[in-house]
Design a binder for these strands. Structure first.
Lengths: 215, 215
DNA sequence: TAGATTGTTAATCGATTAACAATC
DNA sequence: TAGATTGTTAATCGATTAACAATC
C-alpha cells in the first residue's frame, strides 16, 4: 500500500480519522450518481461541515485535489479506502453468540468493506456447533488456538461485562491486534487497538439531550 | 427533577456529556463494592483521566464534592443519573425487525436504566404479528399512529439506509423527540435529538488504527 | 486569460491541564 | 489544628475556521 503522509510523519488527530468514514460514504454515494468531481464546498454542504475543514483533513494525508477543479470522486474514494485500510481483508471472530453477537454475524455488509468474519464463539454448550447463516459456533475454550492458527486480527467481544477484560487479554496473548468491544465497560490493553460500541453510553447521551430539549 | 446548573446557564460541552456515562458506570461499580467515597484522583486513576478534568466536568453542574474528603459515591451516582435523565422512563420503539432490531429488543439492560421498549415495527408481512420475547411486531404503516397514541419519545431506526431519513421524518412529524440511528447514513432533522450508532464507521476507525499499528 | 478552487498559514475558538487558594 | 482534596482561575494545548496566495 502506498504510504500517504510519507514525510510529515505527524500523527493524525483522531477527530480527523472519525470524519473519514463520512467522506467515504458520501463519495460512494456521489460515485453511484455518476458524479466525477466535487469541490470541498459542495462536499461540506452535503455533510454539514466547513469546506476548509475538509481540505485541512485531506491535506494531512496529501494534496488530492486540483485548484480550480476540486477533487476527483472515484480517486478520492479509493485513496480514503486505502488510508483506512479497508481493503485489507482483516480477519475477525465474534465472541458471544447472544443477541448482539448473532446480529453482527449476520451483518454481511462488513464483508463488502474488507472484513471477513470467520466464526462465532460461545461458552454455552447448547450453542456450540450450531450454525448461524454460514457461520459456525465454536466453544470459547478453543478461542486462543483458533486465533493463533487462523491469524485473526480483530476480536469482537459481545459478552457480559465481567468476562470482557479477561477475554480481551486472552485474545491479545493469542495474537489478536484489535478488540471491538460491545460490553458497557472500559477495556484496558497496551499496544492494541481498542474500539468501543457503548450502546448504553450512547443512549445516556441521547437521554441527556432529550432531557434538555423537553425542559 | 432538580435543576443542576441553575444559574450559570452555559451549555455544557458534548465532550463532558460523553464522559458522564463512564463516571456513572464506575460509581455504580464502587457502590457495589460498598465504597462510599472517592477522590477525583482515585476516580481518575481507574478511568485513565486526569483528576482535574473530572472536577472540571462535575463542576459544570455544581459542587458535589467536599474539600479534604472527596465525593460521596451513591449521592454522586444519583446526581449523574438525574443529570442524564436516565430515571425518566423514556418510551422507545424499534423500527426494523432485522438482526440489529431484534438484538436491541432483547437487550433488557436498557429497561433497568429507564428505557422502556414498547414494540418493534417492520414492513415484512411475514414478520408482523410475531413476538420476540415479550415484544410484539407491528406493521410499519401503523408507526405514526402508534407514536402519537403512546407518546413515544425515542425511535430506534434499524432499517436500510435508503429509508432511514424518511422514517425519521415520519416519526418526528408523529411526535417523537429523538432518533437513535443504526444505519450508516447521516440523519438530518431540526429540533430533534439524533444519536448515531455507526458500526461501519467504528470498524473503519479500528481498521485505520490497525493499519497504523501493523505498518 | 479569467474564474474557480485548492493548499497552507495565521487567527480564533474551545477543551484540557496546571496551579493554588478555599475549606472541610 | 494539619492534611487532604475540592472548586476555580489562569495557562496551555489542540482543533476549527478564516484568509489568501498559488495554480489549475
Amino acid at each position: 500500500m502506498k504510504d500517504y503522509l510519507c514525510d510529515k510523519g505527524k500523527k493524525v488527530a483522531d477527530a480527523v480519522i472519525r470524519r473519514l468514514p463520512r467522506y467515504y460514504r458520501q463519495l460512494c454515494y456521489l460515485e453511484s450518481q455518476n458524479i466525477s468531481r466535487i469541490s470541498s464546498n459542495a462536499l461540506g454542504e452535503s455533510l454539514d461541515l466547513k469546506a476548509t475543514q475538509i481540505r485541512q483533513d485531506l491535506n494531512s494525508f496529501g494534496g488530492f485535489g486540483q485548484q480550480g477543479y476540486g477533487y476527483p470522486v472515484s480517486e478520492l474514494r479509493d485513496i480514503i479506502a486505502d488510508i483506512l485500510s479497508i481493503n485489507s481483508q482483516w480477519k475477525m471472530v465474534i465472541v458471544g453468540a447472544g443477541n448482539i453477537g448473532r446480529a453482527l454475524s449476520g451483518y454481511d455488509e462488513f464483508m463488502l468493506e474488507g472484513f471477513q468474519i470467520l466464526a462465532l464463539f460461545d461458552n454455552d454448550k447448547a450453542m456450540v456447533d450450531k450454525q448461524f447463516g454460514r457461520m459456525p459456533v465454536y466453544d470459547v475454550s478453543t478461542l486462543a488456538d483458533y486465533i493463533k492458527e487462523n491469524h485473526v486480527d480483530i476480536v469482537a467481544l459481545a459478552v457480559p461485562s465481567r468476562v470482557t477484560q479477561s477475554l480481551a487479554d486472552l485474545s491479545i496473548r493469542a495474537g489478536a491486534n484489535a478488540i471491538w468491544n460491545f460490553a458497557p465497560v472500559d477495556v484496558f490493553c497496551d499496544d492494541v487497538v481498542v474500539e468501543n460500541i457503548h450502546l448504553t453510553d450512547s443512549l445516556m447521551a441521547l437521554s441527556y439531550n432529550l432531557g434538555q430539549k423537553l425542559k
